[in-house]
């Protein structure tokens, strides 16, 4: 394989991990959303590059979906939702930023150790891609568990899905079925979440998940 193509793929996948890290320390919803848009943009570039390298035109479709849907439509929609709900204040985190960053580093180290060791026989491009993808997935999980706010949990979940798309495109020749399904599932996920948000708003006038937790264990029916 040409050294340059490999380096670019590496750069883009690594960039995705970096943006995941940047999402970890955002303390405002708007900036978190901007980071997510950037995350999806980097994903788009990465997928497009894979499409070019693997000469798999169907991957361009995946890239387009990532660009239009995840880098533009969802962030804009969530922006509007946040403004309408009036919750553009600081995000309350469960854990401080310092420990979160350390945990993030530990997760990335873990995924490198695990994936690079077990994929020695695999194609080097796919191999590194997979290691990065697992890091992005785990960092997305970390975003989800360290935030109390429902919108930021959604963003964490979507960045996790971005990691999955990265993994799926890295696996050479993986049938289109899966890419469509991934995109589709994000769509469904968004609808579901949207429904949730509106219902939650109907009831609580807030999208802070802690408001939900307060009802735990107090059953009155």
């Amino acid at each position: 394989m040409n050294g340059l193509t490999f380096d670019i793929a590496h750069l883009l996948a690594g960039g995705l991990v970096l943006v995941s890290f940047m999402m970890l320390y955002q303390d405002r919803l708007y900036s978190l959303l901007n980071m997510f848009a950037l995350h999806s943009l980097v994903l788009t570039l990465s997928v497009a590059w894979q499409a070019y390298v693997q000469q798999a035109p169907h991957l361009y479709v995946t890239a387009t979906i990532a660009l239009v849907f995840k880098a533009i439509i969802i962030p804009v929609a969530l922006h509007r939702m946040i403004r309408r709900l009036g919750i553009h204040r600081e995000i309350e985190t469960v854990v401080g930023i310092g420990p979160t960053m350390f945990a993030g580093m530990a997760l990335v180290a873990l995924s490198m150790v695990v994936m690079l060791r077990v994929t020695q026989a695999a194609d080097p491009l796919a191999r590194e891609d997979l290691a990065f993808a697992l890091s992005v997935v785990l960092l997305g999980l970390l975003v989800m568990v360290t935030r109390r706010n429902a919108v930021s949990q959604i963003v964490g979940f979507m960045s996790l899905e971005n990691g999955l798309v990265l993994a799926a495109t890295g696996a050479k020749g993986m049938p289109l079925v899966v890419e469509i399904s991934v995109a589709f599932s994000i769509l469904i996920a968004f609808i579901v979440i949207g429904v949730f948000l509106f219902r939650i708003r109907e009831r609580f006038d807030t999208v802070d998940v802690r408001a939900l937790d307060d009802f735990k264990g107090k059953r009155r029916r």
């Binding site: 997935v137 429902a150 979940f157 991934v182 599932s185 949730f196 939650i200 009831r203 998940v209 009802f215």
Partner: peptide
């Protein structure tokens, strides 16, 4: 309660489904 349950189910379920896809 129903919303809390559905939300919890959704979040944990999607983490599970993400792992399964990986």
């Amino acid at each position: 309660e129903a919303l809390e349950a559905a939300w919890k189910y959704f979040i944990l379920g999607s983490v599970g489904i993400a792992f399964a896809l990986f």
